[in-house]
């Protein structure tokens, strides 16, 4: 077997999806953990310090390059699979199977992924671009200057219902993408058996609901004025 078949065969392509998918899941753990610092109720001190660490330390910056590469690979491969899979049945059924035998969100990974992609474009423009490129206002913490990423968040979400709704919708798309994707990735990588299946499915469901919920609470809390 040629090495290239790992990237060109259907099973090889799915391995790429599974590996990058799990990598993105790991990233989400870091992301949700760091962002949860806004719930410390300290006016953003802990959060700004954490964000500063991620922005100034070499290790997260190198990982960030990996993250962009991984997400790009996931998106390109995802769309490529979606197109070739759709093309495998030129003439469809008069009566579609619908939900007989599969969940709607498992059949909608391409759509949910595309919604996530649109969300990511907006999200990167809101936070990554100002914090890495165009610059943020400084804030003094213990006499030292930090980027006020927390202030940027407050400014974006306070009194801006439309943005809050878009973020919450993004969280729904993520929840459904993961509700199928998490356990699917383990199947794709061949990492399931009867003993682990319950564990993988349980952890997957828990993760897919909990993480988007915590993310959604961030814009909601700021909009409602629960955190200031």
């Amino acid at each position: 077997m040629k090495w290239s078949e790992l990237f060109t065969s259907s099973v090889g392509k799915k391995w790429i999806m599974g590996l990058t998918g799990i990598f993105l899941v790991l990233f989400l753990i870091v992301h949700v953990g760091l962002n949860a610092c806004i719930f410390a109720m300290d006016g953003g001190v802990m959060f700004n310090k954490a964000a500063h660490f991620m922005g100034s330390n070499a290790v997260p910056r190198i990982l960030e390059i990996g993250l962009f590469a991984g997400i790009l690979l996931h998106i390109v491969q995802g769309w490529s699979l979606e197109l070739s899979n759709r093309a495998a049945r030129k003439k469809g059924y008069a009566i579609p199977m619908g939900n007989k035998g599969s969940k709607w969100y498992s059949r909608s990974m391409g759509l949910l992924g595309t919604l996530l992609f649109l969300f990511l474009v907006m999200h990167i423009a809101h936070f990554w671009v100002p914090s890495r490129i165009t610059g943020l206002d400084p804030v003094l913490i213990d006499g030292k200057e930090f980027h006020n990423l927390y202030g940027e968040m407050l400014q974006l979400f306070q009194g801006n219902l439309l943005v809050v709704i878009l973020y919450v919708l993004g969280c729904f798309a993520l929840a459904w993408h993961l509700l199928h994707g998490f356990q699917s990735a383990f199947r794709t990588l061949g990492l399931t058996n009867n003993r682990y299946l319950i564990l993988v499915e349980g952890a997957g469901a828990l993760f897919s609901i909990l993480v988007p919920l915590v993310f959604a609470l961030m814009p909601i809390s700021m909009y409602m004025g629960w955190i200031k």
């Binding site: 259907s10 099973v11 392509k13 799915k14 699979l81 070739s84 899979n85 495998a88 049945r89 199977m97 007989k100 035998g101 599969s102 969940k103 498992s106 059949r107 990974m109 199928h180 356990q183 699917s184 199947r187 794709t188």
Partner: peptide
């Protein structure tokens, strides 16, 4: 010309 697997379970 068969497609890839999305693990939908159908």
């Amino acid at each position: 010309g068969f497609g890839a697997c999305t693990n939908t379970g159908a």
